[in-house]
Nucleic acid binder design. Structure first.
Lengths: 193, 193
DNA sequence: GCGAGGCGTCAACTATAATTAACGCTGATA
DNA sequence: TATCAGCGTTAATTATAGTTGACGCCTCGC
């Protein structure tokens, strides 16, 4: 990532506006950028006025002239207590459906970007066929027992020490296929509930 | 769950290829996605064959039908089989200083907003008097042994099932004061290294 | 077998983006 | 002052993306 990491200003919703901001950050004129990118200055002008929606091939050429990757271009969004310690006793156990329980680390605070659960799946426990989907990312490490994790069209059974990491809006499901309770520690970012 | 139609392991450098992979991960047909997105199935077909380069407006409409942001579309790595599951053996152990080791969940952490470590502190292990400080938040659950955690001016010794949660820019320190190794699962958001 | 409905693809057409070649504006220089 | 060189914008043209309506290929159920 080039050194514009902290563009604090509002992430422009319109692509053209965003391009103009980026171009100016890099101190380029429309013509200079056009020359480097191998497009015409008129095209850049029209894009920056949001009068046309560039094809990704054009946008890529333009960004190559900066240079800036498509991913960085779209990512260039902004950036993203006193109760620190919790004894196991304080972490009240909450039941989630029938056979799944967890202890949430910390109180539910809207401002937080991270949620950690100490979860127990009883044998046969299952989040269900209707797959889970929500924003963010999540990961976990199996501590005891085993857990069958389905993510998208892939499924795998994980054992102690194994782990998973996926984007939470890919449909997913957890199930304990074993004979003993499954214990794991999982994290969500941002908190999913 | 819809079957992933044998997507060859091509790295989705081409936008169309990437779109096809993503669409199939989400279990959508071209026609279903077209209906949701308000475009025609033919357009999606042509894009996925890399025969046209969609305009940003079209691509955005299509991604809205999934739904997925442009930033995520360009940023994220969508080969779940390679990225979601990790056996304990795959999570190579890394030593951190003298007596601290960890296994990192996932390989390419740079692009991610969440980092999970399966850590072991040998007896006496200590992150040191020079306190740690970095952006973000972190939390953890103790799995075995005990760990003395210092956050700001507070210190507490945590035992299995206990946990912590704090803003990482508050100076902090970890130390195993016990006679046996301490095992914990911790998470950082965003990744601290 | 055979039709119905779903899938992805494609040729022809329409809509939109990109280029070309101008325009007016500004600031620097003589 | 006059001129020039560079800036961003734009109307008309060309190139490309998107839609329409068809195709062949499947699978499912009669």
């Amino acid at each position: 990532m080039p050194e514009l990491t902290k563009t604090e200003e509002t992430p422009p919703e319109e692509i053209g506006t965003r391009l103009r901001v980026v171009r100016q950050i890099y101190g380029l004129t429309q013509r200079e950028l056009a020359r480097r990118a191998g497009v015409t200055n008129g095209a850049i002008s029209l894009i920056e006025q949001n009068r046309v929606s560039p094809s990704i091939s054009s946008l890529k050429k333009i960004l190559d002239g900066i240079p800036l990757s498509l991913a960085d271009f779209f990512t260039l969004n902004f950036s993203p207590s006193d109760n620190v310690f919790f004894t196991a006793a304080e972490l009240t156990e909450i039941s989630f459906g029938n056979n799944i329980s967890y202890r949430m680390v910390g109180r539910r605070v809207a401002e937080r970007g991270l949620q950690m659960l100490h979860e127990t799946y009883q044998p046969g426990a299952d989040t269900g066929e209707a797959m889970l989907r929500h924003a963010g990312e999540e990961c976990g490490v199996i501590v005891a027992g085993c857990l069958a994790v389905t993510v998208g069209s892939h499924e795998k059974t994980l054992y102690p020490g194994d782990a998973y990491y996926f984007r939470s809006d890919i449909p997913h499901r957890f199930r304990n296929p074993g004979e003993t309770p499954c214990v794991l520690v999982s994290a969500n970012s941002p908190p999913s509930f």
